[in-house]
Amino acid sequence: MYIFFIVFALFILFYINALTNTLCIQKEIPAEKQPKVFRTINVLITILLVSSYIEVSFT
């Protein structure tokens, strides 16, 4: 079960990064601001995935 969750979480992170890249291209976000956008979204998604993992582990 835990292996499946980790693989699923990695898939989610890669997919969210692809969507973020599309967002940056579509909204024409300057290149110097793109790392901040990626970092913010990745941190928020990681927090969401960790909290989901903890909830699944302890229920």
Rank of each mutant, 00 (worst) to 15 (best):
M1L: 14
M1S: 12
Y2W: 08
Y2R: 15
Y2A: 10
Y2K: 13
I3T: 10
I3A: 05
F4L: 07
F4R: 12
F4H: 11
F5C: 07
F5H: 10
I6R: 07
I6D: 07
I6V: 12
I6P: 07
V7G: 04
V7K: 13
F8H: 15
A9C: 10
A9Y: 06
L10R: 03
F11D: 14
F11W: 06
F11Q: 06
F11K: 03
I12F: 09
L13H: 10
L13T: 11
L13Q: 05
F14T: 11
F14C: 07
F14P: 02
Y15P: 02
Y15Q: 04
Y15V: 01
I16P: 01
N17G: 08
N17Q: 13
N17S: 04
A18C: 11
A18V: 14
A18R: 11
A18F: 12
A18M: 15
A18T: 13
L19A: 06
L19I: 02
L19H: 06
L19G: 12
T20Y: 01
T20K: 02
T20C: 06
N21F: 09
T22P: 05
T22Y: 15
L23F: 06
L23R: 00
L23A: 15
C24I: 01
C24P: 01
I25Q: 15
I25W: 07
I25P: 02
I25C: 07
I25L: 15
Q26D: 06
Q26P: 09
Q26I: 09
Q26N: 15
K27V: 08
K27L: 09
K27S: 05
K27M: 09
E28A: 12
E28P: 09
I29Q: 01
I29K: 01
I29E: 00
I29W: 00
P30H: 03
A31W: 08
E32R: 09
E32H: 13
E32I: 14
E32P: 04
K33P: 03
K33S: 08
Q34K: 14
Q34D: 03
P35F: 04
P35K: 05
P35I: 04
P35H: 03
P35D: 03
P35C: 09
K36Y: 10
K36L: 09
V37W: 00
V37K: 00
V37F: 00
V37T: 04
V37H: 00
F38P: 01
F38G: 00
R39Y: 11
R39S: 12
R39C: 09
T40V: 05
T40F: 14
I41T: 00
N42W: 13
N42A: 02
N42R: 04
N42M: 03
V43Y: 06
V43S: 11
V43N: 05
L44I: 15
L44G: 11
L44Y: 13
L44F: 08
I45Y: 04
I45V: 13
I45K: 04
I45L: 08
I45C: 11
I45E: 06
T46L: 11
I47T: 14
I47G: 05
I47F: 11
I47C: 10
L48S: 09
L48K: 07
